[in-house]
């Protein structure tokens, strides 16, 4: 998905650059013509506006860039409590990865896990015993 959004953004950028270049060329051409006109005759300066196609190109380019950027964003996080909690339970860490496939740094799983784990009250001797038994039992999962 990301390469599509990147291509769209680059395309929009090219269009925008082209529109800017056209506008710059147009204005320099206008000033050149005005200078040439003042040399040959003393006619009044005609007010020149930007051709409408350049204006349209600029607007279209801007929309294309915005489209590309928006389509490249990560899916939004749920903002409803139960949806978010359900996602946590259902997907675990997998549901909270960024574009590079890394789990987000602020992912902590169920934030109320501590109520069951109680790290302040950890019984280290029982944990050691259980681990030793697990190793003795062959260490299957």
């Amino acid at each position: 998905m990301t390469w599509i959004s990147k291509t769209i953004t680059v395309l929009g950028g090219i269009l925008l650059a082209h529109a800017c270049y056209s506008a710059q060329e147009h204005s320099s051409l206008q000033s050149f013509r005005a200078a040439a006109a003042s040399l040959t005759s003393s006619s009044t300066l005609t007010a020149t506006t930007l051709p409408v196609d350049i204006a349209i190109e600029t607007i279209v380019a801007t929309f294309i860039i915005v489209l590309g950027l928006v389509s490249g964003t990560r899916p939004l996080r749920p903002i409803q409590w139960r949806v978010w909690a359900g996602k946590l339970e259902r997907e675990g860490a997998e549901g909270f990865v960024d574009n590079e496939g890394e789990v987000n740094k602020d992912y902590v799983g169920n934030p109320f896990k501590n109520l069951e784990m109680r790290p302040g009250f950890v019984d280290v001797r029982r944990q050691r015993r259980e681990f030793a038994e697990w190793v003795k039992g062959g260490g299957e999962k």
Binding site: A93, E94, V103, K105, V108, G109, K113, N114, E116, M117, R118, P119, V122, Q127, E130, F131, W134, V135, G139, K141
Partner: peptide, 18 residues
């Protein structure tokens, strides 16, 4: 997925703790 060292490990399985 490998367990992260940034989370408290008490609830992990023995294999993950190892």
């Amino acid at each position: 997925m490998a367990p992260s060292l940034l989370h408290p490990p008490s609830q992990l399985s023995p294999a993950a703790a190892l």
